[in-house]
Amino acid sequence: MAFLLPPLTGVVTRMFHDLFNGRLAIDIGITLFRAISAFSIAAISGITLGILISRVRPIRWFFDPLLSIGLPMPKVALLPIFMLWFGLFDASKILMAAFSASFQIVVTTWAGTRGVERELVWSARSLGASERQILWEVIFRAAMPQILTGLQIAMPICVIVVLVTEMVMGGQGLGDSMLRSARYVDSPGVFAGIVEIGLLGFCVMKTMEVVRRRLLAWHQETQKDH
């Protein structure tokens, strides 16, 4: 068996080809749409659940063991169930990715809200804040660095899981294109896909970093750089 390693020029030519015939834009667009949808769902539900867990004892009681079981589990293993319930199109891919990524967000949100200094909550209370204001204006804000860390871990998980579901289920996107190239032993296509995925990942991670720096302008970590 011979390894098929295409020449670099072949890969680059292929990428330019994909770029100009619009293939690349469509694939990246579809994959990105799925990943971002999944990320949004995971972020909203994960942060909400994380805060609820830290505030409401029965909810904590119920979810604590589930999180311990679910966190180390490879969630994509449940893909057949998601396919069964949500069909073969976007919904199952997005929900699969959202489900996989939400665990990180729940856990970091929970840890972040739990670690808020009590004097911080007390000062808000003695300055006249209501319990609701304390939750959003103090606890949520104080937990922000950790919540953002959770989101930064969750975003690549969304991309990974979306790519995997595309490879398994088809339905366009970068993962599907790459696997299709492999099926036709089109090695420049496979490697072009890898490079494209790499570039996509790079852009996504850098965007997250910029967002983090914006939101945490007050934090010491952002001040070291200046």
Binding site: E119, L120, W122, S123, R125, S126, V138, A142, H219
Partner: peptide
């Protein structure tokens, strides 16, 4: 607690995400 009793904490307990002005405004 209540705003009738103002407290200055030993460890300051400022809101680190708020500027000096916004801390005082809170």
């Amino acid at each position: 607690p209540g705003p009738d009793r103002g407290i200055v904490f030993q460890n300051f307990a400022l809101f680190p995400w708020k500027t000096v002005r916004d801390n005082v405004l809170y």
